[in-house]
Design a binder for these strands. Structure first.
Lengths: 160, 160
DNA sequence: GATCATTTGTTGAAGCATCAATTAAGTAGT
DNA sequence: ACTACTTAATTGATGCTTCAACAAATGATC
């Protein structure tokens, strides 16, 4: 604690107040993803990114998305998604089918088993999201958080 | 986009509005860490977690922290920190010394070279934090973001 | 319609994280 | 002092992510 007063910007930084906020963001997101990952892995055998892949597929028409759309939706590199989908495919939660319109493309389809796994995992995950985030904030605080982050990711809900 | 109307909670979920906010949080943090990681790796040859380790050390008395304190500060498992510090040590940015008070303990000390690397990396990193986050928000929005995340990580600034 | 550039998706190697198991030192109770 | 318990840190195997290189299809330009 001596160093907060001592030298907040011997390293070139933000204002002291901004720095406090920024630290809270880093720390909070780290804690949050840590808690969510643990819960999912423990109770459902899914990583957080696997869960998110399944969620996007569950919402897509025919539970199908092209690899590149899916990659963009979950903010993964194409390579990362290829590997992740490969693992999900081996577990039977997802299947790959060629894409009719574009012969380079690959459609990723969620299987019934994949949907069942997601359905089983969701309630516990939602409970954890509430416990770690939603229930710790007032409605107004949560709204403000969402609004701020929407400005950081300038396409949270644009759709097609 | 047909599915947003179709079934927002066939899988058990939050209110539609809460869900939008939550999605923004996920998407925003993913984009943000992605951008910050890329910038650091590209311009300074550091991962985001290496950078954070160096920052904490730079602020500590004698630029020294025990492994477990450092692990808690950056929200890493002890194992993860051991590996990460091992790599930083091989690059000469950090050194390990036995801890006098507790012979189980290990002190991690930042070297002058480590400090120099951090000093060189910091301005670009701060620029990126501003570009991706601070400059996209009003002061009030940023303050609200920090306040919300501080409630999620209930010890952002308690100190010793 | 032949060339060049771009986009899509995959691959394998290398690097990093996670997990369970281990060593060693401190703490508590008897 | 002896045993049992807890905490500190490390290790190595396994698994996930990243990166550069690639193949195949599409698009754009002349």
């Amino acid at each position: 604690m001596t160093q907060a007063e001592r030298e907040p910007d011997d390293v070139l930084w933000l204002s002291a107040e901004q720095q406090r906020h920024w630290r809270a963001v880093i720390l909070g997101t780290a804690r949050l993803t840590e808690a969510l990952s643990r819960q999912l892995e423990r109770d459902a055998g899914l990583s957080l990114s696997e869960y998110e892949i399944l969620v996007r597929l569950s919402e897509a028409a025919d539970r199908t998305l092209r690899m590149s759309e899916l990659a963009a939706a979950v903010v993964h590199s194409r390579s990362r998604l290829t590997h992740a989908v490969g693992r999900l495919e081996q577990r039977g939660l997802v299947a790959r089918r060629p894409c009719p319109e574009d012969r380079r493309g690959v459609n990723c389809v969620m299987t019934d088993e994949g949907y069942a796994v997601l359905e089983a995992a969701a309630p516990g995950h939602v409970r954890e999201v509430r416990a770690q985030l939603v229930d710790r904030l007032t409605d107004e605080e949560f709204r403000a958080l969402g609004a701020a982050m929407a400005k950081v990711a300038p396409d949270a809900e644009p759709g097609a």
